[in-house]
Design a protein around this nucleic acid. Structure first.
Length: 489
RNA sequence: GCCGCGUUCGUCUAGCGGUUAGGACGCCGCCCUCUCAAGGCGGAGAUCACGGGUUCAAAUCCCGUACGCGGUACCA
């Protein structure tokens, strides 16, 4: 294949959502796979809805995903001359014509069509206006739109993904290319730009498939070969409806904010509609580049499964060196515990987190002492008779030297044996005392990292806390409220 | 309404005429174990939407139907 040229052409009317991200990813993969060029084009012809900050947000998301573009970003709002020239050329060549109907007249035609139960299609009545009359009326200042003279024949869209689809003559009307205020419209700018940029392959969502015959007609009018089309199935929400905020995160920046890794999102998204053919799932961008092909894209819509994304993110998380994790964690807040403790803590907690946000949350116990205890945990292990046990454990652990997990565990086991208890009956209250919750990394390894003083302090505080049933009742009045006595009597 | 596209375990998918329909997420169980994960092992889960064809043989090819999704602008 000669080096392909592809483009990702988002419209800055919203942030980059995962559907767009996946489209961008496929375009990027395809370009990289074949040594082609990936172009970024911002389709901001709709001046009312386009916003500059959204463009910046899209650019940021693209970079974050690791999808670097080779050319651009080009802004359609800055390419008006190009469209004007093309419009003039089309008009001069008889490929397009002026139509002078007012919006009100068009509305009436639409209503009439509706009333008779048929779909509205502009009937092309302005086609018959002579060149001279058209020029005269335009010169006289009469408002007009530019319409494409759509050929009266079957238009074929040969799509790599969806197959060959035919649009019979008459399925399309002479659609508008340029508004009466002079603004060029989407279909027109897309095709003019695709021709100008030498686009060879158009990879986009199936929602654009109905537009494809229009584009085929336009490319022909522009005397340019049509690019190869590849229309991707939609990405739907878990309920099969169009993906939206209602389904949780849908914008790339939201996933970033929730602590997802770009490589995980890329990998997950790539698998929504594409598979390398074997049972391969975990792939880096580089590996995907080597494996990617348009022929292996699937036509059907897919649903966005947050669970699988979370799993995949956890997989990627575990492969990241702790040193790098420290940097990635910063936006989510890291405890003030010193670099050494932090690194060791990360090793302990990493396999239990699926996102950076989760990891950061679990790491918070290496900072300030836990201020609240899990309700259920308190109910099960917070009985007054446990207090002396916890105090004794605190004493034994504090006396252990060196303060390392093997010796600490040995000390705890010895105490449990003396009391005729199972280790868990000692470990669970201790875990609750140290972390506030009942699920954590191996207790003694945590204790080692937490250190002698912190361990002792938290264990004793917990013992004091549960020793007095009255205080206990006051301290845990209802679910969700802080487990610390809030002053007073 | 009209036009277009789609339809394999709950979900993402492999499969491109002959398979015990494979993998992954999730779920269940076991191992590990001080808890929770991770990891290892095992399991349940798909009459391949339905109905007709074509063929010795169909998840795979063809035609209908149903359902879903998309489009139907002087939006993109």
């Amino acid at each position: 294949m000669t080096a392909p040229r592809v483009r990702f052409a988002p419209s800055p009317t919203g942030s980059l959502h995962v559907g767009g991200a996946r489209t961008a990813l496929y375009n990027w993969l395809f370009a990289r796979r074949h040594g082609g060029t990936f172009i970024l084009r911002i389709e901001d012809t709709d001046v009312e809805r386009s916003r500059r900050e959204l463009t910046d947000q899209i650019l940021h998301a693209m970079r974050w995903l690791g999808l670097a573009w080779d050319e651009g970003p080009f802004f359609q709002s800055e390419r008006q001359e190009l469209y004007r020239e093309a419009a003039d050329r089309l008009l001069a060549g008889g490929k397009a014509y002026r139509a002078f109907e007012t919006p009100e007249e068009l509305d009436a035609m639409k209503k009439a069509a509706e009333a008779s139960g048929s779909a509205f299609r502009y009937d092309g009545r302005a086609r018959s206006i002579s060149q001279e009359e058209s020029d005269r009326r335009a010169a006289a200042g009469e408002k007009f739109v530019l319409r494409l003279r759509v050929p009266d024949e079957t238009l074929v869209v040969d799509d790599v993904v969806q197959g060959k689809t035919e649009f019979p003559a008459g399925a399309l009307d002479d659609f508008v290319l340029v508004r009466s205020d002079g603004h060029p419209l989407y279909h027109f700018t897309v095709c003019v730009d695709d021709v100008a940029m030498g686009i060879t392959h158009v990879i986009r969502g199936v929602d654009h498939l109905p537009n494809a015959p229009k584009h085929v007609a336009l490319f022909r009018a522009l005397s340019a070969p049509a690019p190869v089309f590849a229309h991707l199935g939609m990405i739907l929400g878990p309920d099969g409806k169009k993906l939206s905020k209602r389904h949780g995160a849908a914008g790339v920046e939201e996933f970033e904010a929730q602590g997802y890794l770009p490589e995980a999102l890329d990998n997950f998204l790539a698998l929504l509609g594409w598979s390398p053919g074997n049972d391969r799932e975990r792939m880096s961008l580089a590996e995907m580049v080597a494996l990617f092909s348009l022929e292996r894209l699937g036509p059907s819509p897919s649903r966005f499964d947050h669970e699988k994304l979370a799993w995949m993110n956890g997989q990627y998380l575990q492969e990241i060196p702790a040193e790098r994790l420290v940097d990635l964690l910063k936006p989510f807040g890291v405890p003030d515990c010193g670099a050494d403790v932090l690194l060791r803590a990360i090793h302990l907690h990493l396999s239990r987190a699926r996102t950076l946000a989760e990891l950061a949350r679990s790491l918070s116990i290496y900072g300030a002492d836990a201020v609240r205890y899990d309700e259920a945990g308190l109910k099960k292990w917070g009985k007054p008779e446990v207090a002396p046990l916890v105090r004794e454990l605190a004493g034994r652990l504090t006396a252990t030297a060196p303060f390392a997990h093997a010796g600490l565990e040995e000390a705890a086991r010895a105490l449990a044996a003396e009391k005729g208890l199972k280790l868990g009956e000692l470990a669970q209250p201790a875990r609750l005392a140290l972390t506030g919750v009942l699920a954590s990394p191996p207790l003694f390894e945590m204790i080692e990292v937490l250190g002698r003083e912190t361990t002792r302090r938290r264990l004793l505080a917990f013992a004091d806390r549960i020793a007095d049933p009255a205080a206990n009742r006051i301290a845990t009045p209802a679910a969700g409220s802080p487990a610390v006595p809030s002053g007073g009597s």
